[in-house]
Design a protein around this nucleic acid. Structure first.
Lengths: 199, 199
DNA sequence: TCCTTCAGTGAGTAATCAATTACTATCTAT
DNA sequence: ATAGATAGTAATTGATTACTCACTGAAGGA
């Protein structure tokens, strides 16, 4: 028999294990038997703590959203200038993705389904908050003359996100989840020059 | 009984239908019954023309790679300057994605699996050729003084790809596959400024 | 000490999936 | 016209899936 944990502890461990598994295999291929096995539990035990598999994924997305947004916000707030804030967000995002490679994979996986699921709504809310965080810094940079005022704020935020997604996607292709072969500083430089404009 | 087609025609139609289905549902959720049903066939009939489901996906990826690369190459070659070439590639990629929203979804879906599948190798080869095409134009732009020579070519290509992926991903989130609410010109402008540098 | 509570077990179920097969219908070359 | 080749059918298979449920065992309060 497995070690008995409280319901709260068990739920937290479930989330941890799903993130771990998502780093190793296609998130859509993760089964409840898979998760339970990794925890040293029987499959049925999972349903003592979650009403359905979707509820498990939902808990994972909630955990990931909170983790990401708190890290990104903290990174942004600890920076002195808008430019430094964007750099800090960029770095914080990538370091989280390197630490938990399964997380972006789960987000992508959930966004692929076209029906309006609860998990998709969660993912959407996460990206909305992320964009809002970015746009406030971009606008601040435009206001203080650091960034080109003629660029479209929403477009700049999208390029920022896309740049990170591009990095993560290419790392998926090359199997280099730790981003070792990528010069992330150079990549960020290209983005930064894009919003700085001619000065 | 369904209309009888030649094996070649049937294979081509299968590819067409899979791309169509991928626009409507999660690519991983597409079943052989699903595909056959859309074609007005019984499920078993598919296996007269493909040895396995993976072979079907493989045919789809091959078709998509050829379509994309020929369009992108043509776009690049019809442009007078490196900058115009990048603009043309950008536009050609997005218009193909708008016409066939299922294609980028299938690529993403296949890249999510970590095992070294044949389909993943195909997707990797596609991206390699794409990057090569981009890098030749970026280098040409640097050589003729249009682009900032201090930027890293590979990084610039990655930002280009990421910018497009970012656009498509956000359109996935908002359910706007036709990119109607996106100002793609402004997005491209941010990228372009990033590689132009101060002039 | 006993009793209540609750995490975990293990055997099950119904549904769904890709793939197989024995058979039938249709086309084409001679 | 007919035979051979080939495209499609219908039923089935075995594997896998999320989820259920009657039962077990352990911890803690009275």
């Amino acid at each position: 028999m497995a070690t008995i944990l409280s319901a709260d502890e068990r739920r937290a461990e479930t989330v941890r294990v799903v993130v771990e598994l998502a780093a190793e295999q296609n998130p859509t291929d993760i089964t409840t038997a898979n998760i339970a096995n990794r925890m040293g539990l029987t499959q049925g035990a999972l349903f003592r703590h979650f009403p359905s598999k979707q509820a498990i994924i939902q808990a994972v997305l909630e955990w990931a959203s909170v983790q990401m947004l708190s890290r990104l916000t903290k990174a942004a707030e600890s920076a002195a200038t808008p430019e430094a804030a964007l750099q800090a967000i960029f770095t914080a995002h990538l370091s989280f993705a390197v630490k938990h490679p399964g997380v972006p994979r789960i987000f992508v996986s959930e966004m692929q389904r076209p029906e309006e699921t609860l998990t998709k709504r969660l993912a959407r809310e996460y990206f909305l908050r992320y964009r809002t965080l970015l746009e406030s810094r971009i606008d601040a940079g435009k206001a203080c003359g650091d960034f080109d005022p003629s660029i479209d704020t929403a477009s700049a935020a999208l390029v920022f996100l896309g740049t990170i997604q591009g990095l993560l996607f290419q790392s998926l292709i090359s199997g280099d989840a730790k981003l070792k072969e990528f010069n992330t500083a150079d990549v960020f430089k290209v983005f930064l020059q894009g919003i700085r404009g001619q000065r």
